[in-house]
């Protein structure tokens, strides 16, 4: 059992270190773990990915918790989640400390001059890509367009509340699909 725990923490620490950008970058590592150790089957993994998408929390963390649980029970889920955030945690803290230290430095400020528009462009490209996928011209889905417009008007002009937007999206989805 101890060997399983050690392997689990080693493998998930590796995921934490090498998955750069987004929860989905952990997927190839999870498939690798599956084929190397058989702690869970491919079908189970596919199912866990689907579940991670519908449970609250960051998808990468959900997948670590779930795969850890399937591999080695409650202790396994603690180990997998702890291991996956361990190295990124240290790096994030060091990063904030460094930013604080060189806050007044002109070189750092000119870096931020570039980072801020880049962050906006990144968000915008994700938004456009998701929009294209949902409102794809070849598979035109008028129900998606209706829901999109229905949500767009109240939430972009009147009330800015992330939870309310998500909830209305969920309820709207059920209603529109059943009309």
């Amino acid at each position: 059992m101890l060997k399983l725990y050690l392997l689990l923490s080693y493998e998930f620490m590796k995921i934490g270190l090498f998955s750069i950008g987004g929860g989905y970058s952990t997927l190839p590592f999870l498939y690798y773990i599956q084929s190397k150790y058989q702690w869970f089957s491919v079908d189970e993994l596919t199912n866990m990915i689907a579940v991670s998408n519908i449970t609250p929390g960051p998808i990468g963390i959900n997948m670590a918790t779930y795969t850890g649980f399937t591999s080695a029970g409650i202790i396994g889920s603690f180990i997998a989640t702890g291991a996956i955030i361990f190295i990124p945690f240290i790096i994030s803290v060091l990063m904030v400390k460094l930013i604080d230290k060189y806050k007044t430095c002109n070189a750092l400020n000119s870096v931020f001059l570039g980072l801020r528009p880049a962050a906006c462009a990144l968000l915008a490209s994700i938004g456009i890509k998701l929009l294209y996928k949902t409102l794809h011209p070849l598979a035109f889905d008028y129900k998606a367009v209706i829901l999109f417009l229905f949500l767009l008007i109240p939430f972009s002009f009147i009330k800015k509340n992330p939870l309310l937007t998500i909830l209305m999206g969920g309820i709207g989805g059920i209603v529109i699909q059943n009309i």
């Binding site: 801020r116 528009p117 998701l130 949902t134 999109f148 999206g169 969920g170």
Partner: peptide, 28 residues
């Protein structure tokens, strides 16, 4: 559940655009 998440994916798009609008002034 599938229908709800179909709707949630659409509301996430709107959330992303609202966020850009909020951060735009200080960034671009």
């Amino acid at each position: 559940i599938q229908e709800a998440f179909w709707g949630i994916r659409i509301s996430v798009i709107i959330l992303i655009f609202i966020t850009i609008k909020d951060l735009w002034k200080k960034s671009v």
